[in-house]
């Protein structure tokens, strides 16, 4: 494999990782602050993508579509937080798993009821379409480059939000001692709704951004959700830094595994056997990565308490 191809694949892994980060960041915040496991986070990705596709079809503006995805998913997040999720904070994880599983059923079939079974259309805006030539002669799609930049900017923004702002202080306080911040007179239920809506908004943004290069359809969020879980296990719960490192690790492992493993097996197998063995192992590579991290650090790379 040429060096250029290798670098291009690394970029692809990075881009995939950044998308995962947008999903994992919300999940890990919600878990860190409220102690809640939210299976329906994948549905919020879908809500964002559908909101974007609807607005894009009505107005033709990609920026409005992106805004709609964030607002739509955050609003959906805030609504389910107030109606359902709020009642689950004090419950055990089993109840949380089941209630959010129920939310998946409602969201998925509800979306199908409203939008029908056919995939929706959402495309890259003309000013972001096509490839650009990077230093060294790599041709790389501008849109994917934009995703990487936006994702890293959002990561930086989240770090600042948590490290420097009043909300951030409350979030950190909530992670270390939930009773304490209530005692300090912080409106805890408002904080919870805010954190949940923030996570939902990020998921919605992820949905809109990938919706433009993939397809906007029911159930699009769940595969991403499960990978986001792997990310959180690797990075450590509650840690934004862990989510970022974990996302990039998973993104790069998945991408590179898909190329390197078949190439490795081709050294001593015939082409199609190598292809299918290599591809089969590649699909398992990120789970093997997760198992390795678990053996070495059961609470994840940056997790405090398990």
């Amino acid at each position: 494999m040429s060096f250029l191809l290798f670098v291009e694949q690394l970029l692809n892994g990075l881009q995939f990782g950044v998308m995962l980060f947008l999903t994992a960041a919300g999940l890990t915040l919600v878990f860190g602050v409220m102690g809640l496991i939210n299976l329906a986070h994948g549905s919020l990705i879908m809500v964002g993508a559908f909101a974007a596709a609807t607005v894009s079809a009505a107005t033709g503006s990609y920026l409005l579509a992106i805004a709609a995805s964030i607002v739509g998913a955050a609003a959906a997040g805030a609504i389910i937080e107030m109606l359902v999720i709020r009642r689950l904070y004090k419950r055990d994880h089993l109840d949380q798993v089941l209630a959010t599983f129920a939310l998946i059923l409602i969201f998925s079939e509800g979306t199908r009821y409203v939008f029908g079974s056919f995939p929706l259309y959402l495309n890259i805006p003309p000013y972001l379409a096509g490839p650009v030539t990077l230093p060294g002669g790599i041709e790389y799609p501008l849109y994917r480059l934009t995703i990487i930049v936006v994702g890293l900017l959002i990561a930086a923004g989240l770090f600042l939000l948590i490290a420097r702002t009043r909300i951030g202080i409350q979030i950190r306080a909530g992670e270390s001692d939930r009773e304490m911040i209530a005692a300090l007179g912080v409106d805890i239920s408002r904080l919870y709704t805010l954190v949940f809506a923030l996570g939902a908004g990020l998921a919605g943004l992820a949905g809109a951004m990938i919706g433009a290069i993939q397809s906007v359809q029911v159930g699009m969020g769940e595969p991403i959700l499960i990978l986001a879980f792997v990310v959180i296990v690797i990075g450590g719960i509650g840690s934004i830094k862990g989510a970022l490192i974990g996302s990039i690790l998973v993104g790069v492992t998945d991408t590179m595994g898909g190329i390197l493993l078949p190439a490795f097996f081709r050294l001593f197998m015939d082409n199609s056997a190598a292809m299918s063995t290599g591809s089969a192992l590649a699909t398992m590579s990120i789970y093997i990565l997760m198992a390795l991290v678990l053996i070495l650090k059961p609470s994840g790379l940056y997790g405090g308490k398990a």
Binding site: V97, I232, A306
Partner: peptide, 18 residues
């Protein structure tokens, strides 16, 4: 089982997917 709580949920889910 080296972990517990919400980690355990996510890890069992991930192994199942694998």
């Amino acid at each position: 089982l080296r972990t517990s709580g919400v980690y355990f949920i996510m890890i069992t889910l991930a192994f199942g997917q694998m």
